[in-house]
């Protein structure tokens, strides 16, 4: 049980040319199932973005295609720092959501229906208030005279108010809260699909509960972790309202830079170049996460 799960065996256990042909024809049909979503997104997502991204290779006074906007942004330290901050912030938020979400999901699978219902309901709550309304709650919680500071000062933990609102920490807290549902539900699904007797077996064979948890449950829930992490990462890196409302104007992330150029100054060349760079970098991270996660797919050879 200690060894990591093997990647799924590439050849199916069936043998013979006929079986292989059957598998091959099933693959062909499978392949076609991805077409509707892909075609839809090509027409309704890629083509529109192509129209916008056209601005990123055009400049006034230049005929034809130019990379001047890319060169300008990619040699700008402030831009690169902001890009780095966005990626780091999204990874951190995803990690916080994972650390808090995993125990909750684990407990969910071991509790009765009333608890489960309560957890499910509470999980949906953050998604029910619009980000702008929610920012009011964060002002109440994180503010100078907010709940956290009242508790901290009241218990003598700190002398004066801790600055949380309009700091990067405040944004981390607010973002991780709203990402938690996107982490939690895929985790619950993954753990529900696991066979609880696996962990019991490990414990009865002498492993401690913690060891069984880390060596059996954690690796086997990997597909849920990957799904939750990808959703949470993608949603954090594109989040605009929470960084603006809870972060104030003290720092920038990629979406606020995009807003400034796309909406405030109507500089669509800079806006679309920024968006394209963000997309490529974030997709690379997502792709990396997926490749990592694929190593843990259900593998009959490893059971």
């Amino acid at each position: 049980m200690d060894r990591p799960l093997e990647p799924r065996d590439q050849s199916l256990s069936t043998s013979g040319a006929r079986a292989r042909r059957a598998v091959w024809s099933r693959q062909l049909r499978l392949w076609q199932l991805v077409l509707p979503a892909t075609l839809f997104l090509v027409v309704y997502f890629v083509v529109p973005l192509g129209m916008l991204f056209y601005f990123s290779v055009r400049a006034p006074g230049v005929s034809g295609v130019t990379l001047v906007h890319f060169r300008k942004l990619l040699t700008d330290t402030f831009f690169l720092q902001t890009l780095g901050l966005s990626v780091r912030l999204s990874l951190e938020v995803t990690a916080v959501a994972l650390v808090l979400g995993f125990p909750l999901a684990y407990l969910y699978t071991r509790l009765g229906p009333v608890w489960r219902l309560a957890i499910l309901f509470v999980t949906l709550l953050p998604l029910l208030t619009s980000a702008v309304v929610r920012s009011f709650a964060w002002i109440v919680i994180l503010g100078k005279h907010g709940l956290i500071n009242t508790v901290f000062i009241g218990t003598g933990l700190t002398d004066g108010p801790v600055k949380l609102l309009f700091t990067l920490d405040g944004v981390r807290i607010a973002l991780a809260q709203v990402q938690l549902p996107f982490m939690l539900l895929p985790l619950i699904n993954a753990m529900e699909q696991l066979d609880p007797s696996l962990e019991h077996a490990a414990v009865s064979l002498g492993a401690s509960q913690a060891r069984a948890f880390f060596k059996v449950t954690v690796p086997l829930s990997a597909p849920g972790v990957v799904a939750g992490a990808i959703l949470s990462f993608a949603l954090t890196i594109s989040a605009f309202i929470t960084p603006v409302m809870v972060g104030g104007g003290s720092f920038n992330v990629m979406p606020t830079l995009i807003y400034q150029s796309a909406i405030v100054t109507l500089d669509w060349s800079t806006a679309s170049t920024t968006a394209l760079i963000l997309l490529v970098v974030a997709l690379a991270v997502v792709w990396g996460g997926m490749t990592l996660g694929r190593r843990f797919r259900y593998g009959p050879g490893s059971a």
Partner: peptide, 13 residues
């Protein structure tokens, strides 16, 4: 104390 990108926030504050 704080700098805001959204003026509406100043009112709430």
């Amino acid at each position: 104390s704080s700098i805001q990108a959204v003026p509406a926030n100043l009112r709430t504050l």
